[in-house]
Design a protein around this nucleic acid. Sequence first.
DNA 1: TCATGTGTTTACAACACTGTAAACAAGGTT
DNA 2: AACCTTGTTTACAGTGTTGTAAACACATGA
Lengths: 209, 209
Amino acid sequence: MAKKNHDSPEAARDAILDAAEAIVVEVGPAGLRISAVAKRAGMAHPNIIHHFGSRDGLLNALAERVGERATERITQAISSALSADSDQLVDAMAKVLDTAYQGDEGRAAVWLHLSGAESSLKDNMDKIVDLSHQLRKNIEPTVERENTSRIVLLVTLALVGEVVSGEAIKAALGFEKSPDGSRAQFRRWLAQLLLQLSDSELPKGSGKP
Amino acid sequence: MAKKNHDSPEAARDAILDAAEAIVVEVGPAGLRISAVAKRAGMAHPNIIHHFGSRDGLLNALAERVGERATERITQAISSALSADSDQLVDAMAKVLDTAYQGDEGRAAVWLHLSGAESSLKDNMDKIVDLSHQLRKNIEPTVERENTSRIVLLVTLALVGEVVSGEAIKAALGFEKSPDGSRAQFRRWLAQLLLQLSDSELPKGSGKP
DNA sequence: TCATGTGTTTACAACACTGTAAACAAGGTT
DNA sequence: AACCTTGTTTACAGTGTTGTAAACACATGA
């Protein structure tokens, strides 16, 4: 006896992707077993292969969806910062970092990329750099785009590191976990630092005079 | 017929750890198969279990060795920077970053930590913060230790991110791979930025006045 | 020379996981 | 009402991986 069908293949695919995303967030990319995904989605595991072709097909589809969502959330947060008053700027910037650092989509995106799943990373990064550069130009019109790229690179790498082993490293360095503890303070600190970089003199392009 | 024995159990363990480290660097922690390690070390796989008890035992032992070596290399580089003249400081600092970012031990340490292997992370991070704070105090005696921790956290997270998906992110952001390309420039830029942070006004601890 | 210890190997057991094959169920279409 | 399409399930095959058991080889010491 077959269980109740989904109305459309899209609905089934979405249900499977939801389950897969939750599991990836929990156990990481290596631990993803399609039988576990099937159990969580309430179906038998061959159904997943029917819809996505293979385990890799599922991972790639998930990477695509998750990358898009994370990028949309981050670009939205930067856009908010773009239209913020200057006295709210630090708050808005901290929120950008919160958005990037806290979202499960971001975590899943990193995990998936880590496991070799492909996604349109370049397009997404381009959008983020564009918006970030607009923000920096709002603060100081003469800033160089090259520096924007560098700042985005630094923050992105830190984000990935945060996702991968942030817990252990922060704990080892004595950053408290509690809300409004030193971790939230760290984000505020970083937000201020990034905004300050827009104003102050950054090292020149080549590094050598 | 058994193949030529190692002289001591330590020699055998070292040979196994060498092979395991090379493989972890290549394929990441999830891809480590003890049979592959055995093949590379020129022995049969049960011998690995004989020496380390289990696959996890091997991973933990490797994490310990690799963490110690990476920490030693990094602290050594910071110590060099400590005794550098001020006109060589940027070079020395860039070398610290190179040491951290390029070493295979660093990559393996991150991979292993990622796979759940335990190591004495806190002790190693403490050493690094101590030396970094000495360096910052040399430049400006009034710097706060809290800020040193934050800077080390930021750079460490970025290092982890670099190891995990640095290739893809840098490529997506248009950083060239060639030696002396924009990646080397990025490290120089970051080195100058970090040194500059020692001089300029950093955000206050709480972030709110 | 024999005995003991241990590094090492071959053969195997047990298990988990992915992917396949065939049948079933439920909807829409003619 | 019969048919076709497709979402879904059960049963199974195949493969790869960890860990075990027992035998083997080589060194050291009595």
